[in-house]
Design a protein around this nucleic acid. Structure first.
Lengths: 112, 112
DNA sequence: TTCGTTCATCGTCGATATACGATAATGCAG
DNA sequence: CTGCATTATCGTATATCGACGATGAACGAA
């Protein structure tokens, strides 16, 4: 079991989101974000991190019916898409959502 | 060239969207919609259909730098995800977005 | 019916995704 | 340094994706 404070990472990071929503760049950007969310396990991971019941990789692994290596791969995909961030906390890594990326995704979907 | 009225299809279709946004079903649903949007060409197609400058398959093909068969495949993916609909209009097919699916996607993303 | 147009489907190829176990790398405790 | 716990990466096998050309199916016109 773990007894993490669940609020150790994730500084505010107020990015303005000034890029355009449409055009070819918007297509690529939305496609990349959507592709990262295009797997149920990754959606579930994002939800877990938003709910913030925990943010440690091991806890996420326990919540999913997948091997630890598979969860790590999914975390990597989400991180490369900019949707989450990982902060090293001793031997653990605390993952958290990137609020600006989520806002960006909402803006791009709203711009459809 | 074509001279289509561009408003021949797409009845209102006011669906209530009463299903829950979270939970395992929401994960699968969002993942399926996001996966369908996880390619720039498909994002571009959805945008074209929202702008409604045209809705005929052939016109969509002309807008994209892809072969007709490839565009047809992307249209199939979008249709199977429920994001668009195709109505046969003589030898042509008029595609249009499914507004309820777009609203559903926005609700699911907002529910993250 | 026959022809031409429009769109869908088939078959194929290379690239990418997804899963797993095994192993490496990291950090802390002792 | 040694050992333990945690996470990342590697290697591999299977499945799906994405592209194309070729072909098929449906429809209207002649």
């Amino acid at each position: 079991m773990n007894e993490q404070p669940a609020d150790a990472c994730c500084p505010p990071s107020a990015e303005p989101d000034l890029r355009p929503v449409d055009g070819p760049e918007g297509d690529e950007e939305l496609a990349a974000l959507a592709k990262a969310l295009g797997h149920p396990a990754r959606v579930q991971i994002v939800r877990l991190l938003v709910r913030r019941t925990s943010c440690v990789c091991g806890d996420i692994v326990e919540e999913l019916p997948l091997a630890q290596s598979t969860v790590s791969q999914h975390l990597k995909v989400l991180k490369e898409a900019g949707l989450i961030r990982g902060e090293v906390d001793g031997p653990r890594v605390c993952y958290c959502v990137e609020p600006s990326a989520l806002r960006r995704l909402r803006a791009l979907v709203a711009g459809l």
